[in-house]
Design a protein around this nucleic acid. Structure first.
Length: 492
RNA sequence: CGGGAUAUAGCUCAGCUUGGUAGAGCACCUGCUUUGGGAGCAGGGUGUCGUAGGUUCAAAUCCUACUAUCCCGACCA
């Protein structure tokens, strides 16, 4: 019983840390703010990456790879961009170590100072746009649709496993277009890719929206986002897609000749999701017994556990039956593990696979064999069923789909119950304190008001939902006129 | 970067007040018995007591500095 988790209701943060560590997703590392992603966590990320990668390619993008290091001067070319990232950049100043003449191991060789310092990329707009300058001359070179899978570094003061670490893995798409309209369409298209991924694969409902000026990406004209709601009532930005206008094209002088042979700057987008999605997945679905993973992303979808007894003949029959079942499931493309390891007993395995979030567990013992059934347990509801061995593969296939759907519906219900329409300041504060979740309220559109609300309540405007209903109202704080409601929440 | 806490076996922690040669549980290893919700018995190994100084005959224990981690703030995907 060494792996009991902190109760979700007692201490949500501690529960989150416990579950990430004990389910084997990740571990702390020797480096401040950086984590080790363990095989179970990395397998989850690989599945996310593979699905997204296919979606990117299906929408016409190609992968490429740009350097980890960015010359310091590049970063200062776009004013808003510098301001956004300067405070959290790791800087490389030297390129060589040497033995300490005083015997203290190695030291930085003071003679190996770089002429120009290098920044470890916090994001790659600058290095990429300095390159695009050479790639784009004519409208025939456009659109340029590139994505890269990479690691980035942002020197965060306070880190949390997956949600905010100094180094993280992500993908960043960077595209160049001939017209503003095309670029805006691309921005929206990729937001929709993220939304589809969140809903259909992560089983996580999200709200599509646009950020306010305060929350906008440094250097963007418009930042679109998908916002998810975690079980503790806090919001989490799960993906962003930016319309960059001509800001980077101007900063890096990326021009093209159009059909009329007129020179113009290209229009840009960038978009990204990160390993933060793993944290989102954990906080959206998991419970006090451990992870609950959606079948479409779970590293393993089905675990099969034999329950043997002393009888060698029965043991062999159980083993043969389950080996056969494993093969059949694999043939159907189901990710399955037959845990025939004799070192751990069934009870231990049940608990362990629940902790790891395995969607479906099949157990078979002598008793079941006699009745021609298997015990099938689903992780999302913890329901156990006796299912006939005849047609078991079909039952499991269907069950995996049911689980995927049920997880989404359950999260959707929770999310919808946690969007509160509020029309007075007192109510706003009360709902924030007592219920959490999204608050749909009127706002006068000014950054000052948004900032005040943030200081008073910690709540920020998560987004202005796309296709938002236009409705006359009064700002929740100032009483000034407003044309639409926006979504507030305390966020991760 | 400010406030708080912590640092001892792989993990969780006791020991520190009152200085005297390092402890428990879990995990691990061996064997046997077991196997339907984190097995039982027997035996066994495990330490630079976070790092560096200082006080002392003697430091896990007292003092100083440093480092790291966690929690709470400011900042952020």
């Amino acid at each position: 019983m060494s792996k009991t988790l902190t109760n979700r209701n007692e201490d949500y943060s501690q529960w989150y840390n416990d579950i990430v560590l004990k389910s084997g997703l990740a571990d702390y590392s020797a480096v401040r703010g950086c984590m080790v992603i363990k095989p179970h966590g990395y397998a989850l990320w690989e599945n996310m990456r593979d699905v997204l990668d296919k979606m990117f390619k299906d929408t016409g993008h190609q992968n490429a790879y740009f350097p980890l290091f960015i010359p310091k001067s590049f970063l200062s070319k776009e004013a808003a961009h510098v301001e956004g990232f300067a405070k959290e950049c790791a800087v490389v100043t030297h390129y060589r170590l040497k033995n300490d003449p005083n015997g203290g191991g190695v030291i930085v060789d003071p003679d190996a100072k770089l002429e120009e310092e290098l920044i470890v990329r916090p994001t790659s707009e600058t290095i990429i746009w300095s390159t695009y300058k050479n790639w784009v001359q004519s409208y025939r070179d456009l659109p340029l649709l590139i994505n890269q899978w990479a690691n980035v570094v942002r020197w965060e003061m306070r880190t949390r496993l997956f949600l905010r670490t100094a180094e993280f893995l992500w993908q960043e798409g960077h595209t160049a277009h001939a017209t503003k309209q095309e670029a805006v369409e691309e921005t929206e298209r990729m937001l929709e890719v993220y939304a589809t991924f969140a809903e259909e694969y992560m089983a996580m409902p999200i709200i599509r929206g646009v950020k306010t000026a305060n929350e906008r990406f440094a250097g963007a004209e418009d930042t679109y986002c998908i916002e998810a709601l975690m079980q503790d009532g806090k919001a989490l930005q799960a993906g962003t897609s930016h319309f960059l206008g001509q800001n980077f094209a101007k900063a890096f002088d990326v021009k093209f000749s159009d059909k009329e042979n007129k020179l113009d700057y290209v229009w840009a987008t960038s978009w990204g999701v990160s390993t933060r999605l793993v944290g989102a997945l954990v906080m959206a679905h998991s419970d006090d017994e451990g992870l609950v993973l959606p079948p479409r992303l779970a590293p393993l979808q089905v675990v099969i556990i034999p329950i043997y007894n002393k009888d060698e003949e029965v043991r062999k029959r159980i083993h043969d039956k389950l080996s056969g079942l494993t093969k059949e499931l694999k043939a159907k493309g189901i990710r399955v593990k037959f845990d025939d390891d004799d070192n751990n007993r069934p009870g231990w395995k049940f608990a362990e696979y629940e902790l790891k979030g395995m969607p479906v567990r099949v157990a078979l013992g002598a008793r079941d064999l006699e009745n021609n059934v298997a015990e099938v347990a689903r992780r999302d509801t913890k329901e156990k069923m006796q299912i006939s061995l005849d047609g078991l593969v079909g039952s499991i296939e269907k069950l995996l789909e049911d689980i995927q759907t049920n997880m989404y519906q359950r999260a959707l219900k929770f999310r919808d119950e946690h969007i509160s329409k509020v029309d007075s300041w007192d109510e706003f504060v009360k709902v924030l304190e007592e219920k959490g979740g999204f608050i749909s309220a009127h706002w006068d559109g000014s950054s000052e008001t948004e900032e005040k609300i943030k200081q008073m309540t910690k709540a920020t405007i998560r987004c202005i939902p796309l296709n938002n209903v236009q409705e006359e109202g009064k700002c929740i704080l100032t009483g000034n006129p407003s044309k639409e409601r926006v979504l507030f929440a305390v966020a991760y």
